[in-house]
């Protein structure tokens, strides 16, 4: 008995789907486990594992806010990420525009320099940056968490992404802008930026997540509890004696991860495309 092409295809599709489902387990399980454990007591987390808590401890989500200034830390992460995103958008699109559209001496060299910055991990420059930030009197403030991502390799990546996008905008549109008497700045603002919404969206998404998840910089530059950002707060979720609070740590982690995950699920196509763009262009 031979199978028709349709049957073979059906069988291979089913096998593929089953295989993918198996592979998907380690991608999905941590999230399910995290959320479910956030509702358990510390004892239950280490007891017989089950995805449904025996007793739903909703108070975990209240206690999270009692042991640390968690609302404040949440807000810190949020406003820092928004600031970093806005600054990166402005600065990288300005530079990206000049690199794509304007001719000036040193442009080639500048490109080369910026390109090299993409290769350098921030661990290489963290020590001198520590002294720089100290010299600027900005220790234990949020300024380094804003300045370093905006001007570091992430900002450079955003610049290249913007440049690549501006290159694809038809020159004629700009010429029309010039005819209307727009300055360079005007063309950038009125013509180039509105045409590059997809690139701007991509930069925003990637930058926001980059800042939101930043860890090394807060670890080195922030020391007081109420100036902590979320990753720092999560990594160190202890009571006032330094005793780890496992169940609250997981509840707090859920609080930090789930909103992002929901936004991701809603806008997954846009978000995935943004990253695809960054990888190809950057």
């Amino acid at each position: 008995m031979t199978l028709t092409t349709r049957q073979t295809r059906l069988i291979s599709r089913t096998c593929l789907t089953l295989a993918l489902l198996v592979v998907a387990v380690p991608f999905v399980f941590p999230f399910l486990w995290m959320v479910s454990s956030g509702f358990k007591s510390a004892t239950e987390i280490f007891g017989q594992p089950s995805l449904i808590p025996r007793v739903w401890r909703w108070q975990n989500y209240i206690e999270v806010f009692e042991y640390q200034p968690f609302a404040r830390q949440y807000f810190n992460s949020l406003y820092i990420a928004v600031t970093v995103t806005v600054l990166t958008l402005v600065i990288s699109s300005l530079a990206g525009y000049a690199l794509a559209r304007m001719r000036f001496a040193g442009a080639g060299l500048l490109m080369l320099f910026l390109l090299s910055a993409l290769m350098v991990p921030e661990e290489v420059t963290i020590i001198p940056n520590f002294f720089l930030i100290r010299w600027m009197g900005l220790m234990d403030t949020h300024a380094p968490l804003i300045l370093l991502p905006v001007f570091g390799s992430h900002g450079v990546m955003a610049t290249f992404l913007m440049r690549q996008y501006f290159l694809a905008i038809p020159k004629e549109l700009e010429e029309a802008g010039k005819m209307d008497g727009l300055s360079r700045f005007g063309i950038w603002w009125r013509v180039a930026l509105p045409m590059s919404r997809p690139a701007l969206a991509a930069v925003s998404i990637i930058t926001f997540l980059f800042s939101w998840n930043l860890f090394l910089e807060p670890l080195v530059f922030i020391s007081s509890l109420e100036r902590f950002t979320l990753p720092l707060a999560l990594s160190n979720f202890t009571d006032s004696y330094g005793l780890p609070l496992w169940h609250l740590q997981l509840a707090a982690t859920s609080l930090a991860v789930v909103p992002i995950l929901i936004v991701y699920l809603i806008a997954q196509r846009q978000i995935i495309e943004s990253f695809a763009l960054s990888g190809v262009k950057g």
Binding site: F130, I133, R134, M139, F221, S223, L225, G242
Partner: peptide, 21 residues
């Protein structure tokens, strides 16, 4: 009084001292 979490206290204190703060 400024609270620095116990688990990382000495490290954070080092950062403050070395960081000119």
């Amino acid at each position: 009084f400024e609270t620095i979490p116990a688990a990382d206290y000495t490290q954070k204190l080092t950062f403050q001292l070395a960081g000119g703060n």
